[in-house]
Simulated assay, not measured.
Amino acid sequence: MRSWLICLCVLTVVVTCHSQAPNRYENFNADAIIQNDRILLAYYKCVMDKGPCTRDGKNFKRVLPETLATACGRCNPKQKTIVRKLLLGIRSKSEPRFLELLDKYNPDRSNRDALYAFLVTGN
């Protein structure tokens, strides 16, 4: 359970950072975040409104709805790679938590098929 929370937090951080600031998170280390349970849990709590947020956490939370709704449509290729890696990491840890995140930030499920296609193909 803890691992999926960490993955979910990482996903949130990556998705948010990459869709809002094209260059700010270019060198974001998704693997390091996925492997750090404490950091991942903190980001998860932030984006799910279950804990405090850092500045980055607030930014991620702000752009996450658009990122999920557009299947990372505004992301550059490097950002897409990072976002995809994080989303797949979270999904592999816990499908129910992954869906909970999607439902929170894209409740009308707009463009959900495109998001899943993005996860499969990276495009």
Rank of each mutant, 00 (worst) to 15 (best):
L88S: 04
Q79Y: 04
A30W: 07
C75F: 06
V120T: 09
I39V: 10
S110L: 07
S94E: 00
N36F: 03
L68D: 04
G73E: 02
R62F: 13
T81K: 09
L87Y: 11
R2Q: 14
D113A: 15
K85S: 10
R84Q: 10
F118V: 00
D113I: 15
L86V: 14
G57R: 01
P22H: 08
N36T: 01
L102A: 07
L5E: 15
V15A: 10
L101T: 15
F118Q: 04
S3N: 11
Y105Q: 02
C17Y: 00
V13L: 15
C46D: 05
I6Y: 06
A117M: 10
G122Q: 01
M1I: 11
R24G: 07
K93S: 12
V15S: 06
L87S: 13
F98M: 02
M48P: 09
N27I: 02
L8A: 15
L68M: 06
F118N: 02
Q35D: 11
P52I: 11
D49Y: 06
L101W: 05
P96K: 01
T54R: 01
D37M: 06
R38V: 13
Q35L: 09
P52A: 11
E95R: 11
T54F: 00
T67P: 02
A117N: 13
K50D: 15
N76G: 12
T81F: 06
S92G: 03
C17Q: 09
C72D: 02
G73L: 04
C17D: 03
L8R: 07
L87T: 14
S110E: 15
R84V: 02
R24D: 10
M48I: 09
N76S: 07
R2L: 08
C9P: 15
L64Y: 01
